[in-house]
């Protein structure tokens, strides 16, 4: 038998792992990211002459479980037509049995990298509002993300905010509501043999059933960390959004001391409410969380915190500081003029 040199070994590992796109309309460009289920490649759609992202499983598998997860992820994405969610173009099976789907190729920066270039708190909060917007839209369509974290938020070259990686998404609504029959070719292409039911997930029930823990520590809610998957609702994502907000404001990963100065009280209260240990203590909806952040940006009181008169005065000052300073300067000048010898 022929001895395989290290170079040949490396080459085989590279080439044999590349998805064989023969028989599809795509040609492979290069790998761009690795996820839990497989690899995302940049590919060229030869029919439409455009670059796409192609996500493919690592290996064909006996149970078909990962294939089902990938197809369900594509179906979830196809059902969520929103500027903050990457659109899916196509789903299919390669000649080697691996399932793939293609989506819009997003060029941009991950949130954790991008915030190094965004220094003002209001600008960061405005980014956060757009994340809330995409998540609120998904919730309205009956979909929980369940893995919101900086690595899954992409900021495009024109400032567009995209929520990525819906591989752990959980569908709360009936498929007729979440995935309309005419919503997408993808949904029809792999019409599930058993209709998706309330509580269905992008994984097999054995994987996400009671007790299975999926998500990212620090960003997943306590109930998700306990594996209470049947109990999860929108408020679980609210917790993750709270962790994202805290990360945006402190640049510190969950559990580590913040790099920045202590949070302003209202923002700290918003974070604390979103990160409440029990779902009942959190905002009920992403729109409510976003509304509180908007109130803060507008200089209004947030619902997460009851203000003292001193806080109210401080907020009034922050909101009208220019006018207050001008009036104070005017009054000071008048007082000085009053006492000047005529």
């Amino acid at each position: 038998m022929k001895f395989l040199s290290d170079k040949a070994l490396a080459r085989l590992r590279d080439t044999a792992n590349l998805p064989d796109l023969a028989g599809t309309r795509y040609s492979l460009l290069q790998p761009v990211a690795r996820g839990g289920m497989g690899v995302v490649y940049a590919a060229q759609d030869q029919t439409l002459s455009r670059r796409v992202a192609l996500k493919v499983l690592d290996a064909p598998e006996r149970s078909g479980e990962l294939a089902r997860r990938l197809v369900r992820e594509a179906q979830v994405l196809a059902s969520l037509e929103h500027p903050g969610i990457v659109p899916v173009h196509d789903v299919g099976t390669l000649q080697d049995g691996r399932v793939f789907y293609t989506m819009k190729f997003v060029e941009g920066q991950r949130l954790d990298k991008h915030i190094q270039t965004v220094h003002s708190v209001p600008d960061r909060l405005r980014l956060f509002l757009r994340m809330c917007d995409a998540v609120a839209f998904a919730h309205a369509r009956g979909v929980l993300h369940r893995d919101l974290k900086p690595a899954n938020i992409m900021i495009g070259p024109f400032g567009e905010v995209l929520v990525l990686d819906w591989g752990l998404a959980k569908i709360l609504q009936q498929p007729s509501e979440a995935f309309g029959a005419n919503d997408s070719a993808a949904a029809n292409f792999y019409a599930p043999a058993t209709p998706a039911m309330k509580g269905d997930t992008t994984e097999h029930s054995a994987v996400t059933g009671q007790g299975a823990i999926l998500g990212t520590p620090g960003y997943m809610s306590p109930e998700q960390a306990r594996g209470d998957n049947d109990q999860l609702d929108e408020r679980s994502d609210i917790y993750s959004l709270g962790a994202l907000l805290r990360f945006l404001l402190t640049e510190a990963p969950p559990g580590s001391p913040p790099a920045a100065a202590p949070l302003e009280k209202s923002l700290a209260a918003v974070c604390a409410k979103a990160l409440a240990a029990t779902p009942e203590g959190r905002y009920a909806k992403a729109t409510e969380l976003a509304a509180d952040v908007s109130r803060y940006l507008d200089g209004q009181p947030v619902t997460a915190r009851k203000e003292t008169p001193l806080d109210r005065a401080a907020r009034f000052y922050r909101r009208h500081n220019v006018a207050i300073l001008l009036i104070a300067a005017y009054l000071l000048v008048r007082v000085i003029l009053l006492f000047l010898p005529r």
Partner: peptide, 14 residues
């Protein structure tokens, strides 16, 4: 699980 995928996946593992 769509039957089509399941069948194909099984075929890969005689």
């Amino acid at each position: 699980m769509p039957d089509e995928i399941q069948t194909q996946a099984h075929d890969k593992f005689p």
